[in-house]
């Protein structure tokens, strides 16, 4: 896997006053933050705070209406998604976007397109270059599926997998891109506490063993507090706090955002609730 070549102090990902407006509604209103290389970074906030929109702006799904996104020393604001992905940012999706009818192995192999060498003509002729490509992709896919405990399911259609495995498959697929930065959008949604604990280990493994930088949007506070070194809190598209977990979870604005405008006693009383999972059930997928 590729390791970041940037010097430790310059951030790998930096958002500078990023704005996104949907027909008059400010979904993000000037959010700035920086993610250091090999950091596990949490992006949290109540439902509808703009977290996924931030991911979508970073990955090029949406064009920012203001501000810049810098990645690895380059301004990537407004790049198309495929270019951003090829540059080294991989992601997963809040409402799971696997290639449903394809097998688990094929799902992972799709992400190898960027580095495939055999063109259409090689494929048609089934020549040596094609054979080499296929062998290499199969080998790497097997490696990744092994890490995420999906090896036995390699030949199963993706949509036949249980929810937790589908989330893991999305991460495996994203890693096939050999990214520098991994954006995880609610990876623990729908997981039981055992699966969530396993996920925590896997996220640390990605950083410790593969040298990845991880940004995490998550509602499961125990996961966030356990793995993140730095947390950025947004509400209504604005930054309300940033800092290490211990600091952020005491922050009055954060408590207010999650609990609403209530008395401090209540906030303290319900403090325990903040550190417990917000969602036992996965959020409803969006309907278009």
């Amino acid at each position: 896997m590729t390791r970041s070549v940037t010097t430790p102090r310059s951030p790998l990902l930096a958002l500078e006053k990023v704005e996104k407006i949907f027909g008059g509604l400010r979904a993000i209103g000037g959010v700035s933050f920086a993610v250091e290389p090999r950091q596990i970074f949490g992006l949290i906030g109540p439902n509808g705070a703009g977290k996924t929109t931030i991911f979508n702006v970073v990955t090029g799904v949406y064009q920012p209406d203001g501000g810049r996104v810098r990645f690895d020393g380059e301004d990537i604001s407004g790049w198309p998604p495929a270019k951003v992905a090829a540059r080294g940012i991989a992601r997963t999706f809040q409402n799971i976007r696997l290639f449903r009818s394809m097998t688990v192995e094929q799902n992972v192999m799709v992400a190898g397109f960027r580095i495939h060498k055999a063109g259409l003509l090689s494929a048609v002729l089934r020549n040596q270059r094609y054979m080499d490509d296929e062998r290499e992709f199969r080998r790497r896919a097997a490696e990744l599926l092994d890490i995420f405990k999906l090896k036995e399911l390699a030949a199963e259609p993706a949509d036949s997998l249980p929810y937790g495995s589908q989330r893991r498959l999305e991460i495996a697929r994203a890693l096939m891109l050999s990214p520098k930065l991994l954006l995880l959008d609610e990876p623990a949604a729908g997981m039981n506490s055992q699966e969530a604990a396993e996920l925590e280990k896997q996220i640390r493994f990605l950083r410790d063993e593969l040298g990845l930088t991880v940004v995490l949007v998550e509602h499961n506070m125990s996961v966030v507090m356990a793995v993140c070194e730095n947390i950025h809190v947004v509400d209504h598209g604005e930054t309300i706090a940033e800092g290490p977990p211990a600091l952020v979870k005491e922050h009055p604005k954060v408590l207010a955002a999650y609990l609403g405008e209530e008395s401090e006693e209540q906030a303290v009383a319900e403090y325990e609730a903040v550190s417990r999972p917000f969602h036992d059930k996965p959020p409803e997928p969006d309907h278009d």
């Binding site: 198309p80 998604p81 495929a82 991989a90 976007r97 696997l98 290639f99 394809m102 397109f113 891109l177």
Partner: peptide, 11 residues
């Protein structure tokens, strides 16, 4: 199957 996911995989 999913064009947005395909793009996110650098396709």
């Amino acid at each position: 199957e999913d064009e947005i996911a395909a793009e996110a995989m650098a396709t």
